[in-house]
Design a protein around this nucleic acid. Sequence first.
DNA 1: CTAGGTGCAAATAATTTGCAGAGGC
DNA 2: GCCTCTGCAAATTATTTGCACCTAG
Lengths: 325, 325
Amino acid sequence: MTALPDLTRLKPEGGKRSSKREQIVNVFLRQEGHLSADDLVDLIRQEDHRISRATVYRTLQWMVDAGIARKVDFGEGRFRFEHSYRQPRHFHLICKSCHRSFEFLSSDIEALVEEVASARSFAASQSVVQIYGTCDECRTGRQPTQADGHKDLLFARDALRIAIATERSGLEFYTRAARLTRDPRGRKVFDDLALEEKEHLTKLEARYNELLQRDPQLESQPTFLFFKGAANGLFAEGADRLLKGVNDQQALLIGIRCERGSHQFFKKYGERFDDSEGKQIFLEFADEERQHLELLIREYRALLKRQGRRRRAGRPGSPAARAAR
Amino acid sequence: MTALPDLTRLKPEGGKRSSKREQIVNVFLRQEGHLSADDLVDLIRQEDHRISRATVYRTLQWMVDAGIARKVDFGEGRFRFEHSYRQPRHFHLICKSCHRSFEFLSSDIEALVEEVASARSFAASQSVVQIYGTCDECRTGRQPTQADGHKDLLFARDALRIAIATERSGLEFYTRAARLTRDPRGRKVFDDLALEEKEHLTKLEARYNELLQRDPQLESQPTFLFFKGAANGLFAEGADRLLKGVNDQQALLIGIRCERGSHQFFKKYGERFDDSEGKQIFLEFADEERQHLELLIREYRALLKRQGRRRRAGRPGSPAARAAR
DNA sequence: CTAGGTGCAAATAATTTGCAGAGGC
DNA sequence: GCCTCTGCAAATTATTTGCACCTAG
């Protein structure tokens, strides 16, 4: 079920193998959702009567230390535990009526939280965001839809969606730029950039479809990762009329600026997340953008060289320095 | 201390006057910060030995129902209570080392939280945002600065700061516009707008100073209300070169657009907050902007009328309809 | 053999409840 | 006198601990 392999005994340090502990961990990992210590005791007792509450508590604490479980407090006067191994850290919507809880992640909220902490010189180690209220099903009285899928898959799905949206927006921009630019060499540069984006887009979409096959109802599940700002403004580089007179050098500079923005953006956000498939997607995407960026910079340098040969000498303080950082 | 008047016995419904309860409530209100039930018992016992724990618990519950207190959970395995009467609802930074907690409010976070809830069709009734970590003093080993002041005053201070920043930004914009505009009547309109802003600004600053006098160390306390977006972009109406050819009609339209933006913005945010002085400031500010807006609209209509007389008839589908909504 | 894991029962800790008496209206 | 508030002690609930025993390395 959950992508949780052998690690069971690797992570914890200084532990002795013990059938009881392993049994408890296995039962815990087999479940999904948020279990209270008592829930877990009941589950264990179904397959083994001779397990004491104390052992379950001790094992739970051990799992938290080992990074397998996370202790969450929904204000019920007792704690619950959720999977944590390779699961993205997230926030909760908590229904006061049916007592279910739903997970989400908002990089925007995380960023604001960091900002507040830093404004107060507060070293934040963890943050809790909980929205209490009534869920859709309880309010409308409809059937309680299937439980949330695995966060990990949802996270990956949403990361891919964001990457795809960004890529689409880039493709659109370069295509428009190519259409508008009058200079034929400038147009060539934009055409190449658009082609590159299209290829990358195809790759991302293939990956997205592959993900959907792993879980057919993945697409119908609600948004897990809330994330503004991607695909917005990165490519809004100047008004259309400015694009008309762009030559190849300027076009390359624009491409460099866009790709660098995209790269830094995904790198920054990829690093923010906990280890998980979604994080990988962000970082891979950032890396592909970086490679593309480097390519553009090489092209730009080559272009300058050619120009320099033609015009005897290049200007020393030229934009090359800035563009190539 | 806290601006908490007689209301003590008004709010709760169906209660009988009782010396014990009143005593507990008074002791609670006299304190600031986050008290646990036990803290409160200890405090009460200092002035009256014959009070039972149960009564304190019962009174605490009663205060929560009456809206005097708010129950907060810092994950310590017990609840704490904070003032709630006319205190803005807020979020917490919680120091794991000294166990103090600091309050802040972020309208931006609240907005994002609402967005998430609405995307999930979740009827949010309350939200908890807690940042756990280590506070500045614990990390740097400096003296623990004086405790946070009253949220209410801090909130008012920050609301005023935001209003002032917005007003300044408006003043700056209109001044620049007046300088750039070539049309003398357009310039007159911008000059008037700038004057209006300056007057309003003076009023706000006076109010700010008055607030500082109520608590001299108010200014040195950290930001309580985190709030982006105010004073940003509201007045970024078009590039400078577009302002050059603006006549009086266009200038009025620009003014109307800016004031309306400002009005709606402060109204929306003012309504978001709980009852408190800061909320009042937002709403008052929104109202002043509205009055100014109405004035501008009247002026605009008068202008159109004059033009109509001059040119026989005004165009029916003119921008007047849109501007005056 | 020995450190760590386990069960059981007792201990804590925060909070709630049953009940009989007290006090305001 | 009635209804609610109070105090006290006992109950509840979640979690932890002491201690003797057990078991894997």
